[in-house]
Write a protein that binds this DNA or RNA. Structure first.
Lengths: 132, 132, 132, 132
DNA sequence: GTGGTCTAGACCACT
DNA sequence: GTGGTCTAGACCACA
């Protein structure tokens, strides 16, 4: 008999051409999932094995991602039960989210400037970006 | 007799805290130098050894950067003479630039969506971004 | 759990009297291996270290060969996992092959003309060439 | 007062993308010029300086080519007068020419075979090659 | 002087 | 275990 558990509906997607290592892509997607509110405290994460099968990668890689997040206090592992999103999510509060948004934005604007795209063009580009 | 040679006036600078490997920082600075028009076809690059001395790194590291750009067809080397910017610069044409812009933009919008920022907010953010 | 991995059955062989540098001989053998169909997309190449031991050369030399092919998009590496033949193999497609054929042909005809052999003689020569 | 001197009508052309070093391209063009009969004993070669200017390369490079051919006995230098094609041209008689033709042909056919072009296709290709 | 090749070896991140 | 980065240094061919 099982209490109802919310299985995190996160859709992990790996981009081999991303450049970032696989374990870091996983970490980011979990963190962003929490930041954006799609994942909440107490949600259960997929098991290492099932995720490894789904993503066709080495279980060790997922373990490394989960482990790093547990060290940060963002995840909590209960042996025999699974991995859950911790109640306290240090560094993932609203403030942190805004800070992260600013960071990504700054880097993006700089890169676009390097590519010769100024802010006005940028806005036009985003407005015309196909919403899917 | 003086053959006029344009020595590229690029100012290489390395950022140890960048995270990106040294040779890749050099590659990017050359590519951006060409994209921005500061460096033109036929320009001569600093010699491997002189740049190595200036940047206080091993010549092999410079050679690795130059070599990758030669494989890509962006640079052309003449042993005994030096390294030059190739006439045809595949991957650095206007088309390629636009493609690159689209790529960066797409990834950025996706990342912002993951962070819970929708397109309207995005535009507002960019508009309010401090222009320096 | 066993992921089936096709280990490339390529037999690398170095010819010290070849004149071509070692790393280039390796590159050519991989390219020809793909062209001839002996190696297919997704096949795993020997590890850098194992090949270095087999060929009794420095691992860096193998790495240089693999690296150049990766820049060209012919190989794809996954650190910690190995080096694989890429799905898309630019420069080894049929179009590129035909272009290469034209290039070699043009250079050959020019060289023969320099040697005082005109096209008619050339055809006669090739027809009489001992087929083995 | 000057005895009539036949200035060699050789048209040197360098191909930077050839791969072969410049000085070797010059050597080959002189040897082929003799083999094909376009250049004869006693013909005068361009001066090092004039050729250097025409080809826009370093005079040392031409000197190196001339020097190597003089060592072989193919050229003869008369200080203050110029460089001439020697009376005796060791290794450049008719026999040598035929041997060279065979050598180039063999290498070409092998390379085409490696590229998947058989002899019949080859003949068709050459026949259809635009004669200029 | 120029760049190219190769070796040797250290240290790192990733799977 | 895998490949990646970087250093140090030797030797070579070329302009």
């Amino acid at each position: 008999m099982n209490s109802t558990i919310v299985q995190s509906d996160i859709n992990f997607s790996l981009d081999p051409a991303n450049g970032a290592p696989i374990y870091r892509q996983i970490i980011q997607q979990i963190e962003y999932g929490i930041l954006s509110g799609r994942m909440k405290s107490g949600d259960r994460l997929p098991t290492i094995r099932s995720l490894a099968v789904n993503l066709k990668i080495n279980p060790n890689t997922i373990a490394k991602a989960y482990n790093e997040l547990e060290i940060k206090g963002i995840l909590a592992t209960q042996v025999g039960s699974g991995t859950y999103i911790s109640d306290k999510k240090p560094g993932l509060e609203e403030d942190a989210r805004l800070q992260k948004v600013g960071e990504v934005l700054r880097r993006f604007i700089q890169e676009m400037k390097d590519l010769g795209v100024d802010t006005d063009e940028l806005i036009a580009l985003i407005k015309s970006f196909p919403q899917r």
